[in-house]
Computed example of a mutant assay.
Amino acid sequence: MVFLARLSGLLVMVALLAGCERQDAPPLDQQLYVWQRQWTPAHEAALKDSRADFSTLRVLALQAFPRAGWSRARIDAALLKQDGRPLIAVIRLDGQLKSLDQDEVTTQIRQVLDDWQAQGLILAGVEIDHDAGSARLPAYRKFLTALRAVLPAPMPLSITALPAWLDSPELPTLLSTVDSSVLQVHAVSDPRRGLFDPDQAQKWAKAWSRITSKPFYLALPAYGVALLPQTGGAPLVESEVPVERGGERRELLADPQQLRTLAAELRNDPPAHLAGLIWFRLPLANDRRAWSLTTLGAVARGDTLDSRLTLKLSSQDGLYDVSISNQGNLDSVWPERLTLAVRGCDGADALAGYALQQSPDLLTFTRLRDGRIPAGGQRAIGWARCTHIDQGGSNVHP
């Protein structure tokens, strides 16, 4: 009995210690990339509605490309000041640049940082986004060391990093030059295989945690791309910037359910040194290749995801406008088919993206191409002039 009592007490102590450890583990931070090159009035609502779920904004500030040269993002400094969240300026140095001119790059970065600060923006850090090949990591390390020497002393410096660097013996030394790193685990391989593999992301995160001794973040996708075929080569990728070219586009979209599961696993059992998740990108109301902010917030919080498509009819003098409403928190594809039980119709038609088949007592709208209805949004399907439409006898077929 004494042995059992001691064993019971020991088990209680172990349980209490485990509970304390879980409580002491800091929650994963959640941040957002703001990646639009040209800010619009839509940013105001997007920033406001994202405040509750995302602590920090990593804002595209400056880009350098091999042929196009330097380009500054046209931000709205007043909105960022009003928002008040910690602000990290992201400098994008395209990986196809043959080399990094230390003096030129440093001058460009100092100018944009000075301009931002002159507009009243208080920076919480600088992030360098440079997809260097592994063979160029020694030169990249020297560049970062020199850059750090000219940045204000308290200014944290971080880098975006690639899983391909995991095999490089130069990686530990490179990571020692910065305060933190952001491991990009999406769109890092052939886009034809998809944007994101959650199992692979987990493996990369665990491998990264064994190499770095400093905080790191995972950059996770909340967007989609389109693939345009090219003769004799890899497909052309169209993302947030439209490609001025015709042709059939194959759409790829990161799966919110997959990302929600991964985020929950990382919260429950985070790899060593994992400080948080950074979502790419802040969606605007007209961003057709990003999750809606409703879905992104639900994924970040770990909410149960659900699309609830319902038929909406609005009528005036016998003319019905037919639309679909998504009352859930998960963006939905357009329904494959919509059937309306009707009487006395003397006219009807489908809108772009759907075709109409009509019989005396049934209207059938059939999807012709893919599209999405954002959470909380709706999409017009067509119209009908009828004496009666039985909403209870009508159906939405996902």
Rank of each mutant, 00 (worst) to 15 (best):
T366M: 08
P270H: 02
A290W: 08
L62S: 04
L87C: 07
A207I: 04
L356C: 06
L32C: 03
L47P: 03
D197V: 02
T366K: 10
F65T: 10
R193S: 14
Q30A: 12
V14H: 06
A149H: 07
S325N: 08
W35R: 03
L87V: 05
L262E: 06
Q230P: 07
V182R: 09
L305R: 01
Q258N: 09
D199T: 14
F365V: 06
L10A: 15
Y223N: 08
S180E: 11
Q391I: 14
S315T: 12
S394K: 04
L305K: 06
A275I: 09
A5F: 07
L144D: 01
G133N: 11
L123W: 01
A89D: 03
G133L: 12
G376H: 02
R192M: 10
D167L: 08
T173R: 15
L62P: 00
A384R: 05
L144I: 01
L147P: 10
L60Q: 04
A46E: 02
P283D: 11
D390K: 02
A205I: 00
L356S: 10
W204E: 11
L87Q: 05
A77P: 09
Q23R: 15
D114F: 06
V178M: 02
T107F: 04
T310Q: 15
D303T: 04
L113I: 13
D321V: 11
S332I: 06
Q230H: 11
Q82M: 02
S359C: 03
L311H: 04
A132V: 15
H43T: 03
T295C: 09
P27E: 08
T56N: 01
G95V: 00
Q23G: 09
L144K: 05
